[in-house]
Structures are given as C-alpha cells and as structure tokens.
Design a protein around this nucleic acid. Structure first.
Length: 473
RNA sequence: GGCGCUAUCGUCUAACGGUUAGGACGGAGCCCUCUCAAGGCUUAAAUACGGGUUCGAUUCCCGUUAGCGCUACCA
C-alpha cells in the first residue's frame, strides 16, 4: 500500500502549484488505497511563518482535501541529525570547515561549477575530530564519489530512466554549521522514517533527486519510487511568483473570487495531466479512478491569465459549468456568502442568475437589484427603447403602471398582459419590455422580465416604475 | 558556464511509425430570443528549425534554437 506525502515549506501562502502537487499525491493515494501524509517542511526557521501555515490549512480545507497523517519536521530534528551522523560514520560524509561563502546577491555560475571546497575531503578523521572538538564550525557534506564512472540512476514514474555522473554532482551539505539539517537531509531522513513509498513532487526537484538517491543509499535505505510533475508557469514562461504575478498564484484568491472547490481542482488536474479520452469535466471519483502517472505529461503548463483577466478562461468555464450543474438550494446557500440576503429570497433569485454568473462573487453585480431597497442612480436615457424616444418610454411606463396595479403577479398573467399591451400600442415587445426592465433593474442586461417581476413583487415594481416616470417628466 | 528536463492550434491537451493531425477553452459567424445569458449549428487556428533512419515520421536518432530547472550552510 503506497504511502505518499505532500511536504510544503511554510514560507508563503498556499500556492496553486503546491495545491496541484497535493492533489496529485492525493489522487494517487486514493486510487491505490494508500496513505496521504501532510508534512510541514519547516526547517528554515527564519522564513517560516504562522500565517503561512494557516494559509496552507485554510486552502486545503476549502478544497476539501484530507490527509491521514501529519508531521512537522521541526519536531524531528534529532532524527535527521542521527541519520546524518550515521552517514558520516560510514564515511559517506565529511566535515567542511570552510567558512560560509560571503552573501553575494548573484552566485557566479559563469566560472564553472563549484563541486567542493579544497582540502576538506581529505582531512583525516583525527584532525577533523580535533578541530570540531576545538569548537571550529563546520558543515557536514556528502562525499560524492566523483571518481566513479558509475552514474547515479533512478527510474522516474513520469520521466522514466534518469542518470547523472557523480562528477557532475557537487558535495552538498547535510548539516549546517548550526547543526540544523538541510532540506535534502531532513527530507530524506523523514521519507525513510515515515516509510514513504512514492515521492510525487514538482519537476524542480528532478535533478535534486540524484542527491537524494545518494542519501538514501548511504543511509542504507532503498530509495522510494519517484514521480516528478511538470511545473505550472505564467504566460510569459516564467515561474509563478507572488512578487511578479500577484494574487493569481494564491489558492485563497480563487476561493474569494467565488470558484467552487471542485471546479478549481478539476482545472488544476487538467494542467499537466490528461485522462487521454477527451474528458474534461470530471467528478472527484472520476479523477481518482482515472489518475495514473502515464497520464502526466512532461512539459510545463501555462496558467493562462492576463492583467485584465486574472483567471484562466478554462477555469472560469469549468466553474460556470459547475455552478449551472449545482442544485438550486445548495448554490443559493453558497451565494449567500457573497451577498447579504434573506435565505428565502436568495432561493428565488438563484434560478434567475444561475446561468448568468461564472463566479459566485458575480452574484453581487448580477442580482444587486433584488436586494436593494433603492436602485443605484442610472442614466434615464437607458429607459428609451430601440427605435423609440422618451415619449414612448413614458407611455410604456404609464401603461405598465396601470396594468401592474391589477394583474396577477405571476409569470403567465404578466406575460399575457404586457404582450397584449404592446400589441394594442402597436410597438414591438422589446420596446415594451425594455423600459420596464431598466426601470426595475436599473440596467438593460438582466434576467428575463416576468420571472424578475414575480420575485420583485408588485410593491417594489410599482415603486421603481414610479421613480422612472418621474425621471422622464 | 556545467548538468538535467522540455518543445502539437493563442491556452490546456489527444494521436501502436500509416489520421482530412482529434477534443476542449477562448475567438469569429449563424440560429433561438423581451435584453443579457444559456443552448444549438458552423468556422479560423498547430506538429520550433535542420539533418538522418524508414516504403512512410507529430511519433525513433543526431544537431540547432528556445524555454524551464538544479548548480547555497533556501526549500
């Protein structure tokens, strides 16, 4: 039974790429009856924040994603150190007393690769021990077998066979000079201890994996299976970053804009993965059933947003579809999070706007006139129908006032009475309906008229028509 | 610079070495219609470039170009 983990470092809000990594791990676990583990990789004490931890939990909760076990690396430092020193004792690591390189803003990569510091690999055990005992600070480095012509290899579930010569791998650090394990050390030690069977993570770790294989082997553990995921990138090909791309990279932005959790998950799944049978709208169960590493492709996927349009059109479409497919009572309940409205009234409004909103938050603009006592000011010329003038608008509204005072306020009688009136006035139905619609909604684009009037009721309708008439005279 | 990964419509993607290169979003047009939507129909749009291998390359190999990643006592 597979054991997989999602291991975010809590140094920022929950990123949509991280969310996708969680989802793919989760799908793999659920597909294979495995165990999903959440592990906070919080060894970078300086950059960790509680706000970030909150953001991760908040985002995952919104997406209704669950996990079976939970750990924090900061609770497990002793374990990591123990494994590191065991590797040292086996001779796979050495103390490096070279002082930390000065904090240069840009590491000089032009000069060729750095592989190790001079004179440190060959220090005798005795001298190394002596200097350490004397209190000289050091980092513990992995001794990469760079003289070996045997490549380090592993099989990736997505990228298949991977191979790299030790000569191209630098002597990476296991323990910092303050004794805190590095990411590589902590991650591998935990993966061993937690019995992780499959590591599913972003492709940015693909080349790190060679180092990890070395650690696993030095620690006497069989490396787990690996599967690397193509990255999510911006339209310009750069990686998604908050600084450069703003809130579009944060999961909570989608929640606050009124995405449905499932639609958002559905969208994320389609970036870099395909069921290969042209299906796109899939339920959670369908995703679980269809998921496999074979469906993951190898190239990065663009999240297609712009400054004008912060959300990928496909995500928006998926969301609109999900909104339309949702039962009215359930949708109505969700919409109330975005607008202050009486539940009973919202229940009646929901069917009228369901096909007209793509995001839940749009209820605020699509249904405003249902919840306002007084309409926001609008341009009176809006009341003038196509191929008509203000006189026509006035006549229409006056006639409507008469009719609406007495007619039964339900769909069919309203329809019949207003249509009859347009005929008798010898104007088109559109010319009849538009002034009424604008008077009652405050704008031209709105849900169908009779349903709208029915929900609004006689009193409000007449009051608003009265106001419109006043504007025209 | 070194090493690694990648390259199909604008975007997400499909295609045992043999297809008119398929689907979806978005775009355009038409229909429906009391407006806006929704819905229906139609349409434009792609194999980065150059060499091989092969009877035949989107598919296999090599090169070029481009993008991305790693190259820290970050993760």
């Amino acid at each position: 039974m597979p054991r997989v983990r999602f291991a975010p470092s809590p140094t920022g809000f929950l990123h949509i790429g991280s969310a996708r990594t969680f989802i793919f791990n989760w799908l793999y676990a659920r597909h294979n009856n495995g165990t999903m583990i959440l592990r906070l990789d919080d060894t970078d004490v300086d950059r960790n924040t509680q706000a970030s931890i909150d953001s991760i939990f908040e985002g995952l909760k919104w997406l209704d994603l669950s996990w079976d076990e939970e750990y924090r690396q900061s609770d497990r430092l002793a374990l990591h150190q123990k494994v590191a020193w065991r590797i040292f004792e086996k001779g796979f690591a050495y103390r490096d007393f070279t002082p930390a390189a000065p904090e240069t803003d840009e590491h000089n990569h032009e000069a060729g690769p750095w592989l190790f510091n001079q004179g440190m690999r060959e220090l005798s055990l005795a001298e190394s021990q002596q200097r350490a005992d004397a209190g000289e600070p050091f980092v513990l480095r992995y001794r990469v077998p760079r003289e070996s012509s045997q490549p380090v290899v592993f099989h990736d579930g997505v990228y298949t066979h991977q191979s790299k010569l030790p000569a191209d791998i630098e002597d990476f650090a296991l323990l910092r000079s303050n004794g805190i394990p590095t990411y590589h050390m902590a991650s591998c030690a935990d993966d061993i201890d937690l019995n992780i069977s499959h590591i599913i993570r972003g492709q940015d770790h693909l080349t790190n994996t060679f180092k990890h294989v070395l650690i696993f082997e030095a620690a006497g553990a069989k490396p787990p299976q690996f599967a690397h995921l193509p990255l999510l990138i911006a339209p310009d090909g750069s990686k998604l970053s908050k600084r450069k791309h703003g809130p579009v990279v944060s999961v909570t932005t989608y929640r606050d804009a009124g995405f449905l959790p499932h639609a958002f998950i559905n969208f994320l799944c389609l970036l870099g993965w395909s069921p290969k049978d042209d299906r796109e709208q899939m339920t959670r169960q369908e995703l679980v059933d269809a998921f496999s590493f074979e469906g993951i492709n190898h190239s990065n996927a663009v999240v297609n947003f712009t400054e004008e349009d912060p959300f990928d059109p496909k995500a928006v479409w998926l969301n609109a579809e999900a909104i339309r497919a949702m039962p009215v009572p359930e949708l109505s309940e969700k919409l109330r999070a975005f607008v202050n409205a009486d539940p009973a009234r919202m229940l009646r409004v929901t069917p009228l706007i369901r096909e007209r909103i793509k995001l839940l938050s749009e209820v605020k603009t699509a249904a405003d006139f249902f919840f306002l006592d007084d309409l926001a000011p609008y341009d009176p010329t809006e009341l003038i129908p196509q191929k008509g003038d203000s006189a026509m608008a006035l006549t229409v509204l006056q006639r409507a006032r008469e009719i609406l005072t007495t007619v039964d306020f339900t769909h069919d009688p309203l329809d019949a009475a207003l249509r009859a009136a347009s005929q008798e006035m010898k104007i088109k139905t559109g010319q009849m309906f538009q002034p009424i619609r604008v008077a009652v909604c405050g704008r031209k684009n709105a849900p169908p008229l009779f349903e709208t009037l029915e929900v609004l009721g006689r009193e409000t309708t007449l009051k608003r028509i009265e106001k419109a008439i006043a504007m025209l005279t």
